[in-house]
Amino acid sequence: MIKYPVLEPGAVIGVTAPSSGVGEELRELLELACSRLQEQGYGVVCGATAWTQDKAKSAPASVRAAEFNAMMADDSIGLVIPPWGGELLIEILEQVDFDHMKVKWILGYSDISVLLLAVTLRTGIATAHGTNFIDLRGKETDPVTAMWESVLSTASGESVLQHSSQQYQLEWGGGEPSPHVFNLTEITNWKTVGNQNVTMQGRLLGGCIDVIRHLIGTPYGDVRYFQQHYIQNEPILWYLENCELSVTDLRRSLLQMKLAGWFDHCSGLMFGRSAANRPMENYTVEDVYQELASELGLPVVYDIDCGHLSPQLTLVNGAFAEVEVRVEAEEAGGMEEGQKGRGTVRQYFRP
């Protein structure tokens, strides 16, 4: 059975950096995020690792793991949100205390998805792939990002609905400063292989493919055990996002996941938008998606609100989800242009 934490009003947020910390030169971003969340009624406790960064990590692995373990064991802390991702979270996994972990939310993405996926696969505790702490520093929060509170406040046995965004951010740091952090300038358009409307459902698992692929073959990436012991062999609905992989590396990584059995008893796949999806020769990411859909005989949806081109949905590892994507008219008369490429994700917090 999946165990779902619940975000309580006025909860204390523990900010620890199991991957990268903020560092002195960007200290004001973390300070601003702390102030914004406190204004909204949350308590905020920042660990020492949140403020430091050296040699591509916030601190040595033992220090990062100890601070994370302490926050997960502390009853006064209601949820844990790292400041952002990084590069070397995988270094701490051997020192994470999975056996004595309290049931509380961990929220983040990018390199943090290594920790999220490992925790859910090992313990059956639901984890949340979504915004990081730093991106909550704005005077306003866009509607898609703001759903993190509604999703994490959903009670076990209940459901929560999220809609695709209207616009997304094309690149970091571009354009004029925005009161809600992101510069949302590009029209969102969810797509499907075959360009047909898609409906699919299953237990959500996923993260940043660049890093979660390294869990394959380790004690922290046993998808088959998770299916058998926690979700009674229900199908898995994968969501994946590519930060930096070339299209050929993406293809290799997906094949490795397939060969490792990660796509056994799978109901479909969703891919986030990515600035890394540049063609190699004439081999495109659409070719990758088409090949995967053909090999697995499964629906593939792409360019969803997930990953490094914000905003992004809050997707809960372990939750049962129903996904609908509309890319064409189902009835005579068709759809308005603004209705095409829209999607919804309803997550059921089913044990």
Score class of each variant (00 low, 15 high):
98 F>M: 07
98 F>Y: 15
138 G>F: 06
154 T>M: 08
134 I>C: 14
130 G>E: 04
146 A>G: 05
65 A>H: 05
132 N>Y: 11
132 N>A: 14
121 L>W: 02
77 I>P: 03
78 G>E: 04
123 T>Y: 06
69 N>E: 04
118 A>H: 00
67 E>Q: 08
129 H>I: 04
88 L>S: 10
76 S>G: 14
120 T>G: 15
71 M>S: 04
108 G>F: 03
86 G>K: 01
152 L>M: 15
128 A>V: 08
151 V>S: 02
114 V>G: 05
152 L>G: 00
128 A>Y: 01
100 H>T: 09
138 G>A: 13
92 I>H: 08
59 A>F: 04
132 N>S: 12
103 V>I: 14
62 S>F: 15
66 A>M: 12
154 T>N: 04
156 S>T: 13
150 S>C: 10
97 D>Q: 09
148 W>K: 03
99 D>Y: 04
115 L>E: 00
95 Q>L: 13
68 F>Q: 03
57 K>T: 12
71 M>C: 06
85 G>K: 03
150 S>P: 06
78 G>F: 08
146 A>Y: 04
72 M>C: 12
129 H>V: 09
66 A>E: 13
121 L>G: 02
101 M>K: 05
116 L>K: 01
107 L>W: 02
85 G>L: 03
132 N>D: 15
64 R>T: 01
153 S>M: 03
106 I>K: 00
83 P>H: 05
135 D>A: 13
135 D>I: 01
149 E>P: 08
95 Q>K: 08
72 M>Y: 08
85 G>R: 03
86 G>W: 02
77 I>Y: 05
147 M>C: 12
105 W>L: 03
104 K>T: 07
82 P>K: 06
97 D>F: 14
67 E>K: 09
73 A>Y: 11
107 L>F: 04
81 I>V: 15
146 A>H: 02
105 W>S: 01
73 A>V: 05
84 W>E: 05
134 I>D: 12
145 T>F: 12
134 I>T: 07
120 T>V: 06
87 E>A: 15
